Simulated assay, not measured.
Amino acid sequence: MAFLELDGVTKRFGPHVAVEQLDLTVAKGEFVSLLGPSGCGKTTTLQMIAGFLDLTGGAIRLEGRNLAEIHPSRRGLGIVFQSYALFPHMTAAENVAFGLEMRRVPAAERAERVEAALAMVGLAGFADRYPRRMSGGQQQRVALARALVIRPSLLLLDEPLSNLDAKLREEMQIELRQIQRNLGTTTILVTHDQVEAMSLSDRIVVMNTGRVEQIGTPQETYERPASAFVANFLGKTNEFAGTIEAGTQPARIVAGSWSAPAPAGFSGPVTVSVRPEKIGFAGAGQGLAARVAIRIFQGNHWLFQCETECGPAIVIRQNDGMAQPAEGEAVRLAWRPEDMSLRAAGVRP
């Protein structure tokens, strides 16, 4: 039996369908991210799990229990909001203790659990500090400690890192993942940040206009996107018009001057999708003819904007100390067949 199960979950606001027939099973201890652009239904889904919104259709079960039959306050969930929602008149320790007080945990046990929770998030010396005297990262830690101190069966995170600057957000991603692994708490994260979802998650649920586009591990969704939307939303991708030449044995896929054996299941015109870091510079007479339009140094790698006979292409090459093609230089681009994905030409992203 799945620990958390969403079975045909649907939510409508009048004629607008916010979430449509969402099916998802989550294992105990798993970290799953709901990823997608604004308005895709990810926050609505989280709010239905929390009980803040009623379902229009379907069911949500936690350890076999129908959550629709359980009041939100009795579901035993830990929630961290984007705004943190800390009480400004309470110290960090008082904020963390609030949920325990509501559950009438004895004072001695409450003090021990609050101290342990603050230490777990790196705030052992901040118990008496008020939120207004804390940085954004420290406030985020307090909110996380408050959610975890009640020992929730399920932790819900609603874009908790979006208000932090880039460097602090990266640091908090590492800390959050480490805490989740140590505690083994089943976690659902809502985010629109692709890097965050891939850094933290065991699996990613990519959503678009209320529907699930793909569910898979970070590597699966990145390396083998199920749709053009997933390919373009999870980082940069290059797309070339190609065709399957069935007259040869075996059949070949051709995009401009690049060709390779064709995978099974495709025929006629296709769109070839290749990630920028999967493309290399090939020798003379090999690969796709191109010319470097722009070359940008970005520290640990070079980014090349190239013009090819099949349209523009982005190439990312690691900075290995070797000489790199100059702007205006003619080059040849090549990639391995296993590093590309295909879809029939004309299929809508």
Rank of each mutant, 00 (worst) to 15 (best):
E338V: 12
G256R: 00
T44W: 02
M120L: 15
R169I: 02
A264H: 10
E327W: 15
T191W: 01
R61V: 03
P276W: 04
I279Q: 02
P261R: 10
D202F: 07
Q47L: 15
F52Y: 11
T221P: 08
G311C: 01
A231D: 02
L155V: 09
M322C: 13
A345W: 07
A326H: 12
A97V: 02
T209V: 13
Q173C: 09
Q47H: 14
V205P: 05
A85V: 01
A246H: 06
T237L: 04
C306P: 00
L157P: 01
K236I: 14
L168F: 07
N182L: 15
Q173L: 09
A262P: 02
R146L: 05
C306W: 00
L22C: 04
N319H: 12
I150Y: 00
E171N: 12
G8R: 14
L55A: 05
L6S: 08
G311F: 00
V230F: 02
I174W: 13
L144P: 01
A111K: 05
A85I: 02
Q214D: 08
G41L: 08
V331M: 01
E196A: 09
L100Q: 01
L35P: 09
D7P: 10
K167M: 14
F126T: 06
F233N: 05
I49V: 11
V121C: 08
R291N: 01
D320A: 15
Q140A: 07
K278G: 09
F3Y: 15
T185D: 03
P312V: 01
E112G: 00
V105E: 00
P337I: 05
E307C: 03
I179S: 06
Q305T: 14
A85Y: 04
T248V: 13
Q324N: 13
R141A: 05
C40A: 10
M322F: 15
G36H: 08
R348I: 12
N163L: 13
P37K: 03
G210I: 10
T43D: 04
M198R: 08
A2F: 15
W335T: 02
T10N: 09
I204F: 05
Q194C: 06
L189F: 13
C40V: 10
N300Y: 13
V149W: 01
R291V: 04
A293D: 13
E213A: 04
E30I: 15
G346I: 07
S227I: 06
A323G: 14
V212Y: 03
G76L: 00
T10W: 11
L55C: 08
P72R: 09
V142C: 04
A143V: 09
F281V: 04
E239T: 15
Q47C: 11
T45G: 06
I294E: 14
A145I: 00
I49K: 06
I279F: 05
R146P: 01
V195S: 13
A313H: 00
P37R: 00
T185W: 07
K42E: 07
R177M: 06
L164C: 03
G57P: 05
V96R: 02
A282N: 12
